[in-house]
Amino acid sequence: MELPLVVGVDGSEPSLRAVDWAADEAALRGVALRVVYASLWERYEGASLVGEFAGVRDEGLAEAIVEGAARRARERHPDLKVSAEVVPEEPEYVLPRLSRDATAVVVGTRGRSGLAEALLGSVSLAVAAHAHSPVIVVRGSHDNQARRPVQGRVLLGVGEDGPAALRFAFEEARLRAVPLEAVRAWRWPAHETTDHPLLAGEPARLHEEQAVEMLETALRDAPAGIDVHRRTVEGHARRVLADLSHHADLLVVGTKRPHGHLGRVAHAVLHHSACPVAVVPQDA
């Protein structure tokens, strides 16, 4: 049985963007969509409801939010199987728990004190750090609509985080019928310099060759039929990927999450990517 896609909602515009994105993804994958409102969410993020929920009395607010989100998903994809539920727990516990039986978990970004588009909400960060499935954090739009894919590519940051992120990225590219751009960033350490004019470019060339080799090794089992573009770029991976995200519909990164913390690259792109980010745990 195919596992459903779970989307967390809280009545805010960012969460409704996440519903749109999740509905599109569930329809693409042919799986059900499970809309979840953790009723203690406002304790973490504060109230920032869209107009349709602003006048609802507190005792009916949770049900109104989750049913409104489910209705929105059904209107977007009438044939999509959608369920809705309210769970009276903290979202940072509910969503990771539900991720055990989910294809993926989708959340929006919401910060505090008017910084919603500059800072990642605490719930989104906690879910990305503790979920058992891939987590997609929907970024990159400033209205209450999720953008349809327009760039025509999936971007993959190739690191040392295992094959799970690779498999997820391959599948996304296949489902969307778009190229996969696989990127390996590399650095030229400052101490590896030489004053000899004939050897000046040698350290950089060696580091770039290592990046190319790692990229080829990671992609050697790419499924047939997927158009894979390989790219090595000098620079910090977090900056390279954030820059390239402006030209992608989805950025996929892996994470080992030592001691329950996201790695530096995943943490950085969650804050600065221009497109939705899929964080795939190593053991997903």
Rank of each mutant, 00 (worst) to 15 (best):
A118D: 05
A118C: 05
A118L: 15
L119I: 12
L119D: 14
L120A: 09
L120M: 10
L120R: 08
L120I: 14
G121Q: 07
G121D: 08
G121W: 07
S122T: 15
S122Y: 07
S122P: 12
S124F: 06
S124Y: 10
S124I: 06
S124K: 03
L125F: 12
A126E: 12
V127K: 12
A128S: 13
A128I: 04
H130L: 08
H130D: 13
H132L: 14
H132I: 03
I136L: 14
I136A: 15
R139K: 15
R139T: 12
G140C: 14
S141Q: 15
H142G: 07
D143Y: 09
N144C: 15
A146W: 15
R147D: 14
R147C: 10
R147M: 10
R148P: 08
R148V: 13
R148L: 15
P149N: 11
V150F: 04
Q151H: 15
G152K: 11
R153I: 02
V154S: 09
L156R: 07
L156P: 02
G157F: 13
V158W: 02
G159V: 04
G159E: 15
E160G: 07
D161Y: 01
G162C: 07
P163H: 09
A164I: 03
A165Y: 03
L166S: 03
L166M: 04
A169R: 01
E172Q: 14
A173I: 06
A173Q: 03
A173Y: 04
R176N: 04
R176E: 10
R176T: 01
A177C: 04
P179I: 07
L180H: 05
L180Y: 05
E181P: 00
E181V: 10
V183C: 10
V183T: 04
V183R: 01
R184I: 00
A185F: 06
A185T: 06
W186A: 06
W186M: 09
W186E: 04
R187F: 11
R187H: 09
W188C: 06
W188D: 14
P189E: 10
A190E: 09
A190G: 11
H191A: 13
H191P: 05
E192Q: 14
E192I: 05
E192N: 07
T194R: 09
D195H: 10
D195T: 13
P197L: 08
P197I: 08
L199C: 02
A200L: 10
G201K: 08
G201R: 13
E202N: 03
P203G: 09
R205F: 02
H207E: 09
H207F: 15
H207P: 06
E208K: 06
E208N: 06
E208P: 03
E208V: 01
E209W: 02
E209I: 00
Q210E: 10
A211V: 08
A211M: 07
V212T: 09
E213G: 04
E216L: 02
E216A: 08
T217G: 05
L219T: 01
L219W: 02
R220V: 08
A222Y: 00
A222S: 13
P223G: 07
P223L: 04
I226M: 00
V228N: 02
V228W: 00
V228K: 00
R231I: 03
R231S: 12
E234N: 11
E234Q: 14
E234M: 11
A237M: 02
A237N: 05
R238Y: 04
R239T: 08
V240T: 14
V240G: 07
A242T: 15
D243T: 12
D243K: 10
